[in-house]
Design a protein around this nucleic acid. Structure first.
Length: 275
DNA sequence: AATCAAGGCAACCGCAAACCA
DNA sequence: TTGGTTTGCGGTTGCCTTGAT
């Protein structure tokens, strides 16, 4: 299983792409479709390695890519999904079809990581956590209280499924040594954010995604409510807490109606003197 | 106006999984 | 089944832009 030698060849151009190169690449892909990247440099005359061509296409030239500022909803989704999945940028980007994994990764590294860095120490303050928890209890119904732990149990085997402690990977490895174990208090303090969106949890109207994300939308609000109720019955059999499935979380994540709520949180974060 | 530092982002690197003959 | 090739992905680098001095 050797490394691809394509980029080791002499005479291969590196660095920023010119508009001319872009045009060549786009017209080739339009004609032949994406894939078989090894043939692209030879067939187009581009002095680029196949890998570079593929990257240029997927990260920049591919149709439907949305550029520019991330919306509060997108921001919220990234924060949520990063907490759930860790640095699985491709997986996270699959929930944001218009964004590339590179975009998401860059946005996380340059914007969100800083935000959360400010956010996290503040959350370690017990009173802060309590305040958040109170907010949770004040705004959320018991049926909508969720934990990341239960969600991740379904979402990814790579993530700790222990309900009392999950791996929060918002800190880079070099700083935390591979993820922090989050305390119950800390974890619960996050929940208020979850519950700010409980309307969406209960009244999701979002569309379905493709198989990669992996949920099937009922397309019916009532049906979704029934889903939750049945799930509650099952889950609460052995446990007093209700943990919605990952598909429920996905429903929330993909619901644009949450944008306002996320913005609300962002505003709160901005306004808070702690941050 | 010039210089420097920090931030942002496109692109590259290298590993690993998937694919295929 | 095996080994070579291709593709996907995450981490990192380096250049360009912007803001501060």
């Amino acid at each position: 299983m050797g490394r691809s030698p394509c980029c080791d060849k002499v005479g291969i151009k590196k660095g920023p792409w010119t508009p001319e190169e872009d045009i060549l690449l786009v017209s080739y892909v339009q004609e032949h479709g994406p894939g078989n990247w090894r043939l692209v440099p030879t067939n187009t005359g581009l002095q680029r390695c196949s890998k570079s061509c593929r990257l240029r296409w997927t990260n920049y030239l591919r149709p439907g890519i949305k550029r520019g500022n991330f919306t509060p909803h997108e921001e919220g989704m990234i924060i949520h999904l990063q907490a759930l999945l860790g640095n699985k940028w491709a997986a996270i980007a699959s929930y944001l079809p218009q964004r590339t994994d590179n975009d998401v990764k860059n946005y996380w590294n340059t914007h969100l990581k800083k935000k959360l860095k400010k956010f996290q120490p503040a959350m370690e303050l017990p009173q802060m956590a309590q305040a958040c928890l109170n907010k949770t209890l004040a705004t959320g119904s018991s049926s909508t209280i969720a934990t990341y732990a239960s969600s991740t149990e379904i979402a990814s085997p790579n993530i700790c499924s222990n309900q009392s402690a999950i791996i929060l990977q918002t800190q880079p490895k070099d700083e935390s040594g591979g993820g922090d174990l989050m305390s119950n208090e800390h974890f619960e303090s996050i929940l208020w954010f979850e519950n700010m969106n409980n309307v969406a949890w209960e009244k999701s109207t979002c569309g379905s995604t493709t198989s990669k994300g992996g949920f099937q939308d009922s397309g019916n609000d009532d049906q979704f409510s029934v889903e939750i109720t049945q799930e509650m019955k099952q889950k609460t059999g052995n446990n007093s807490k209700f943990y919605p499935s990952f598909s429920s979380l996905e429903k929330w994540l993909l619901d644009d109606s949450c944008a306002g709520k996320v913005e609300e949180m962002n505003q709160w974060m901005e306004l808070s003197p702690i941050f």
